[in-house]
Design a protein around this nucleic acid. Structure first.
Length: 875
RNA sequence: GCGGACAUGGCGAAACUGGUAGACGCAAGGGACUUAAAAUCCCUCGGUAGUAAUACUGUGCGGGUUCGAGUCCCGCUGUCCGCACCA
């Protein structure tokens, strides 16, 4: 009997070195086996890995190792999302260079990841801040520019006053910068934009085909893209006081059915017509100014009252030349949605209702709810936006909303104003173009040159990369590239005259929008991708990461892949075939009596009166146990993965990460849970030790042993089948349960046979079962699995072994146990042959004592027999 | 305001298309081994009643469909998430 404990530290170091030496996880592009690309979202090199990384990369590694065992050529790479603000902030704080900070963090984190025993192909490692990577990104920018995928335009942009840079719409969360948390202001700037809105329709429609994506993410992207079908309607302006040359206002509406309920037109303050009128109207000018000031902080917009200004202009109703409507400038109309102008129908829209109430405009009911009389119905204090039929609407009366929309569209398409149709069907999107200019140093330089005579000139491909200069300073705010003495001064590649480099760099989300493609061949130097290879590997079969990227990174990558296809750098539209969003790692929080956060390492939990309490290790002072929160530095409830791996080993950390909660849900990190995982490792090690030392007796052969052999084999084969099913669906917590179940069964069997003579057949069944168990845990606890595999006498490694083939006939029972219900409640069980037909089942059921008692001699009303499942006797 | 998800023991959770509710783990309690502790092993563990077999009850609340509902339908309540003056 073995007594020594499993030494994780030693074994893990040993096996990691062996895998490395044999280059076991090096992936060859020319390998003929079917491909499988599994990818976890690459980390930002912030300093050290955290538990969220451990969870993410463990899940990916389980998939990679499992698919490898199933005979796939698996691509499982790792890299670094290495550009970004924190490096610049660190440079400012330490008077150092962002590159130094970044590369030193990468070195630390690479070592940490390696200590987890991940089966990664480190030969393909990339860092986005490396010129050998961003060179190709600049090449693609140039290609996109030529391909009409990029715009340079002046637009109102989101300005982050803390980070001193522009943010894309997606990067503004509740009016604040996604990184700094500062209230975002609006500024007019000339910027580079990727024309993602050209792909709005396709990005929207293709979501329906992403069947292996979470419904939630698809829905979030749909909402973000915000497709709406409507009608654009041109209202004729009353010529008497219209500005010179203006004769119409075009509005956009999704409710053309309510056109007879119109009571005003409202323009955005930035609308051209508003500006024209304001030129001659100082009061309106002041109003527009006021709106602009309001617009600088999102928070104020949310709370602002509906305010408007009557321009004095009037328009004619398209269905009634004698009916005119006033034109307002209103603070709640957005210039960049639709046409920047609306018609207001107060009876059936909350905002229009508020506005009409404030300015005493008519409120005319035109939709009548199904349960009301159209002759008498009228909206009261709240507008009605539900279903119903049209009323007070001339030829639309009695039509449903949909029919009325259709009728209005049909008629207005035929009407004409200034030789154009009055109404045009239009699909609108909420999605705006992706502004990628950032006024920062630590990013990919935008490869263009501004020349006074030639205009914007792309940097010739032979001159790429445009490298960041090393000699920069961070002592003052703003962009170091802008104030660098020489960097921006270059000659125009076209005319040779003195010109100026673009000093903006690209949004770091560009970097992560194509790294998955670069991984397929990261060595190629003259192009971003090798077409045959990238098309062979993409799409990524299984992508795993946090839900926080549901819109930003995942939407940008979907766009970028399409753009790459357009200019010939890839052949697919969708980068990720399967997406999995994992939950967070959360932990209890602790505070001392002064209310200061205390780390888990500083306290001790103890039990008193059946309740959990905590005290400080240093002086025994009591500590309050607080709510369970996402691990964060500010609440000091983090656990350092290094500490766990140092104390328990990587396998313990990996096992616990997978065991406690379903992977999409948050997992609560607890010391008890970790210890449970560590306990299981030792238990498994003892079990394997016991099995490896079994010796057969010469004459041990009895009937009971035969039964035992079947029981053992059934348990083992059933476990394999279940784990296969669950791994395919990433239900790791269930896989863990199956492993426990099999281990429990084997341990119980060993205990029964302890000190008894055992047959060779029994021993080989135990050995097979043990090997199956090791195969099951191998993707999750690879080091322990190797050690056990060796202990069972194998010369090769389990990491190279094929997945066991389960014998499905073994788990088909001859006799089945049918639960017997009486009136839907379980009352008894019946063991009967699998082949038994319904009439023999019925006979056997009626013969049961419990059923006889329930029937009291009467005949049953009904007997429901569900084959192989259940019997229900209705009395 | 709009859209979505979720709700099961002391806790994390299982329950495939409606078919034995609570697998597996954690915690707790009892016992064995030990001079003792740790480790390990065995037993109990939704609630109520009972020594027990057992009975009744039980998946947020109220209804419904069904031979049968944690699962499906309708209506509530609560929690979490996303979007938010989008016409």
């Amino acid at each position: 009997m073995r007594t020594e404990r499993y030494n994780a530290r030693e074994a893990e170091r040993k096996w990691q070195a062996t895998w490395d030496e044999k280059e076991l996880f090096r992936t060859k592009n020319e390998d003929p086996r079917p491909k499988y690309y599994v990818l976890e979202m690459f980390p930002y090199p912030s300093g050290r890995i955290h538990m969220g990384h451990v969870r993410n990369y463990t899940m990916g590694d389980v998939v990679a190792r499992y698919k490898r065992a199933r005979g796939f050529n698996v691509l499982h790479p790792m890299g670094w999302d290495a550009f970004g603000m924190p490096a610049e902030n660190a440079a400012m704080a330490n008077k150092s260079h962002p590159a130094k900070w970044t590369y030193s963090n990468i070195a630390t984190m690479r070592d940490q990841l390696k200590s987890m025993g991940l089966s990664l192909d480190w030969h393909r490692e990339i860092a986005t801040c490396d010129p050998s990577y961003y060179k190709h990104q600049q090449r693609m920018f140039v290609d996109f520019l030529a391909g009409g995928l990029i715009d340079r335009k002046t637009a109102k942009v989101n300005w982050d006053p803390v980070d001193q840079t522009v943010l894309a719409n997606e990067q503004v969360i509740e009016g604040r910068g996604w990184r700094s948390g500062a209230l975002v202001e609006q500024r007019e700037l000339t910027q580079w934009f990727f024309k993602i809105s050209d792909y709005a329709q396709d990005l929207n429609d293709a979501l329906d085909r992403l069947e292996r994506w979470p419904e939630k993410v698809r829905l979030m992207q749909k909402n973000w893209i915000g497709r709406s079908e409507g009608l654009s309607v041109r209202f004729a302006l009353d010529k008497s006081n219209a500005p010179q040359g203006e004769s119409e206002i075009e509005i956009y509406t999704t409710r053309p059915d309510t056109l007879f309920g119109a009571s005003f037109i409202a323009l955005a303050p930035e609308h051209p017509l508003s500006k024209m009128v304001a030129e001659k109207n100082p009061e309106l000018n002041a109003f527009i100014d006021e709106c602009r000031k309001m617009g600088t902080a999102q928070e104020l917009i949310d709370k602002a009252e509906k305010k408007g200004f009557d321009t004095g202009l009037r328009v004619t109703h398209p269905f009634d030349p004698s009916w005119t409507l006033p034109v307002y400038v209103a603070n709640f109309i957005l210039m960049d949605y639709g046409t920047g102008a609306i018609f207001g129908c107060p009876a059936h829209d909350q905002r229009d209702f508020d506005f009409a109430t404030a300015y005493r405009l008519p409120i005319k009911t035109v939709v009548c709810p199904p349960d009301q009389d159209p002759k008498t119905y009228s909206v009261g204090e709240t507008p009605y936006d539900g279903d119903g039929k049209l009323c007070n609407s001339s030829f639309l009366d009695g039509l449903t909303i949909d029919a009325a929309k259709e009728e209005v569209a049909k008629r207005l398409e035929k009407e004409s104003l200034n030789n154009e149709p009055v109404g045009t069907r239009k699909i609108n999107f909420r999605l705006r173009d992706w502004g990628i200019s950032r006024q920062r140093y630590w990013g990919c330089p935008i490869p263009v040159i501004h020349c006074e005579s030639c205009g914007v000139v792309p940097v010739p491909i032979k001159d790429l990369p445009v490298k960041l200069p090393d000699d920069v300073t961070f002592d003052v705010p703003g962009n170091p590239l802008e104030r660098h003495a020489t960097w921006k001064h270059v000659d125009c590649p076209q005319c040779g005259k003195a010109a100026r480099r673009e000093t903006d760099t690209m949004d770091t989300f560009v970097d992560s929008s194509w790294y998955f493609a670069r991984f397929t061949n990261p060595w190629i130097e003259d192009r971003p991708t090798e077409r045959a290879v990238v098309d062979g590997w993409l799409p990524v079969n299984q992508y795993i990461g946090g839900i926080e990227h549901a819109i930003l990174h995942l939407l940008y990558s979907r766009f970028f892949t399409r753009a790459m296809k357009k200019v010939g750098h890839a052949g697919v539209d969708e980068p990720f075939d399967g997406l999995f969003t994992q939950g967070m790692v959360v932990h209890e929080t602790y505070r001392d009596k002064e209310g200061n956060w205390v780390t888990p390492a500083e306290i001790e939990i103890y039990n008193e009166g059946g309740e959990r309490h905590a005290k400080l290790l240093s002086n025994g002072a009591p500590v309050d146990i607080g709510s369970i929160e996402k691990m964060s530095k500010s609440k000091r409830n983090t656990i350092d993965p290094d500490d766990i791996i140092g104390t328990y080993g990587a396998d313990t950390a990996r096992w616990f990460m997978l065991s406690d909660s379903p992977p999409e849900r948050d997992v609560i990190w607890t010391e008890e849970g970790v210890q449970g995982a560590a306990r299981f490792i030792q238990r498994l090690w003892r079990l394997v030790g016991d099995v490896s030392e079994l010796k057969p007796a010469d004459n041990a052969h009895d009937a009971a042993a035969e039964d035992a052999v079947i029981t053992i084999r059934k348990a083992a084969h059933r476990a394999i089948i279940r784990v296969e099913e669950d791994l395919e669906r990433l239900r790791f917590n269930r896989c863990v349960a199956h492993a426990y179940e099999l281990a429990n069964a084997l341990q119980a069997e060993l205990a029964v046979k302890k000190d008894k003579q055992v047959s060779p057949q029994w021993i080989s069944a135990m050995q097979e079962a043990c090997e199956f168990l090791i195969a099951i845990i191998a993707p999750m606890m690879p080091h322990l699995a190797e050690e056990c595999w060796t202990a069972l006498g194998h010369q090769s490694m389990i990491a190279e072994a094929a997945w066991p083939i389960a014998d499905r006939s073994l788990i088909v029972e001859n006799d089945i146990v049918l639960p017997i219900q009486i009136n839907g409640k379980k009352r008894d069980e019946l063991t009967i042959s699998r082949q038994a037909d319904n009439s023999s089942i019925e006979q056997a059921v009626l013969a049961l004592e419990s059923v006889k008692a329930a029937l009291e001699g009467k005949a049953p009303k009904k007997i429901v027999i569900v084959p192989q499942r259940i019997v229900n006797v209705v009395v």
